[in-house]
Write a protein that binds this DNA or RNA. Structure first.
Length: 463
RNA sequence: GUCUCCUUCGUCUAGGGGUCUAGGACACCGCCCUUUCACGGCGGCAACACGGGUUCAAAUCCCGUAGGAGACGCCA
């Protein structure tokens, strides 16, 4: 039998990077086992759910190449079904109506807590046979014995039923709670394996009781550890970036995110760079670790640098275009394409890459302070020499030709190449870090090079 | 507070009784390459939380302790 798994995010916030990992694991599980990967939007909290968040969920999954197999289920459209199940449970005696007011319950809870006792609904309405439809419906949970989960990641976990509460299934306004709707939907969607964050582990016991009360087969569970920030607390905004959208905007490639997330908490021997095909071939729940892991930005960056280098220049260029501050012409695009090899060896993110491209499209708008080191009389004299050398070269030139001529010049003048090269870099780029100056000249051409050098000399002259 | 889970270099992890003087990757530090910065190459630093067992033998199995995390809503 082929597994059916699902990813069931709630659009009450921007898609968390940890949720993305859950989606990935579910997807890989389905693809590895020839099963189906389904999507369900859990939008029953109408107040906090937004269209924008829902849109972003689809967008991010597409961006990552995580495709789904059937029409996504929108949970809010299934309200009638949820209600129906709750009513049936009341009829069958596995649930009951409760008319304790929220205020009463809050008071009881406060009292219990102040006495240092664990709070649990006291079961006041459990056997009262209330018919008032304004009441909530609670699960009549088992009072003794225990409930066991054989989790595919966590192993066998047992909880005493006395610990479990009579949870609310249907609110007084007739809408289902999360506990009810997940169980009903997972059952109706024929979900065989539930792979989700381990913050749901304790919910599982309550949910199993609902499955049993309804006489449904419980699916298999796999609770994967959460992702934490560098300080060990749940990864959130204050750690910098917690949503998948953030990472996309920061210039991380989708293949980087997939690979990183896969490797976080899961391993296949010593493999670090894992292609999509390998991931599908190798993925197995058995290799998921049980301990939580911290998100390491440096490692993410390193991986991203790897994938940037690995992309072919044309696709990298088109991916980068939206990151550019200004639109560029076709001629400029060609320049960037030529310079891409040099550019991509240095970039950690696409944002870096986009920023670094400016040397190929425009003259420096300002010069870094460090450049003044190469604005001495000696350097200016050398730059004059460079200009004469370049003027002597006609037509299109290659990087090698230019390098050759400049090396000869250095030799003639009895200076080290670095002195000339850095002065040229300051003039051409306005800073002392850039791709090869000879390569830059090849791409921007002699004329523009001479212009930039002249501007630099004029600028130092004014100072 | 109650319940549940977790614990190998700073971080992600390999390992599942002897092959472990614990392997890899990122980070960090050197050196090499070099027109800068990167890339790349070579090398270095660095961990089995603690205490008891079991065993000829324990990072690996068992029990405690400590620390960390999660769940305890008419949120999902």
């Amino acid at each position: 039998m082929f597994p059916r798994v699902r990813f069931a995010p709630s659009p009450t916030g921007v898609l968390h990077i940890g949720s993305v990992r859950t989606a990935l694991f579910n997807w890989l599980y389905a693809r590895h086992n020839g099963g189906k990967f389904l999507l369900r939007i859990e939008d029953t909290d109408k107040v906090r759910s937004t269209e924008q968040n829902t849109k972003l969920i689809f967008e991010i999954l597409e961006w990552l190449g995580i495709d789904w197999d059937e029409e996504p289920v929108i949970q809010s459209t299934r309200l009638t079904r949820h209600r129906e199940v709750a009513e049936t449970m009341v009829e069958e005696g596995t649930a009951y109506r409760c008319c304790c007011s929220p205020e009463e319950l809050a008071a009881k809870k406060e009292k219990a807590l102040s006495n240092g006792k664990p709070y649990k609904y006291d079961g006041t309405c459990r056997d009262r046979n209330i018919t008032n439809l304004q009441s909530v419906i609670r699960l009549k949970s088992k009072l003794d014995g225990n409930t066991k989960v054989t989790d595919l990641v966590q192993g066998s976990v047992v909880v005493e039923n006395s610990q479990l509460d009579d949870i609310v299934l249907l609110r007084s306004d007739g809408t289902p709670t999360y506990m009810l709707s997940v169980v009903v939907d997972d059952h109706d969607m024929d979900i065989t394996h539930i792979i989700r964050g381990d913050d749901h582990l304790t919910n599982t016991f309550k949910q199993i009781q609902i499955y049993e009360a309804c006489g449904w087969t419980t699916p298999s569970f796999a609770h994967i550890p959460l992702i934490y920030g560098p300080d060990g607390a749940k990864l959130s905004k204050r750690h910098g970036a917690a949503s998948a959208v953030d990472y996309r905007e920061l210039g991380y490639l989708p293949e980087t995110i997939s690979n990183y997330l896969l490797r976080l908490g899961w391993s296949h021997g010593n493999d670090e760079i894992i292609s999509r095909a390998e991931a599908i071939e190798w993925f197995d729940l058995k290799n998921i670790g049980k301990s939580p892991s911290r998100f390491d930005m440096k490692k993410l960056q390193n991986l991203n640098a790897h994938y940037i280098r690995q992309r072919d220049n044309a696709s990298l260029l088109s991916y980068m275009l939206p990151f550019l501050k200004e639109q560029i012409s076709e001629a400029e695009e060609k320049r960037l394409l030529r310079g891409m090899d040099d550019l991509k060896a240095r970039a950690k993110t696409v944002v870096d890459l986009a920023e670094a491209t400016t040397v190929y499209v425009e003259a420096p708008t300002h010069y870094d302070d460090a450049c003044s080191k190469y604005a001495t009389d000696i350097h200016i004299a050398l730059l004059h020499d460079v200009v004469s050398v370049l003027d002597g070269i006609s037509g299109s030139v290659t990087e090698e030709q230019i390098a050759q001529s400049i090396k000869e010049l250095a030799e003639q003048q009895g200076v080290k190449l670095i002195e000339i090269a850095q002065a040229m870099r300051a003039a051409l780029c306005g800073r002392l870090v850039s791709p090869s100056v000879f390569q830059i000249i090849e791409i921007i051409g002699i004329k523009e090079t001479v212009n930039r050098i002249n501007s630099f000399m004029a600028y130092t002259n004014c100072k």
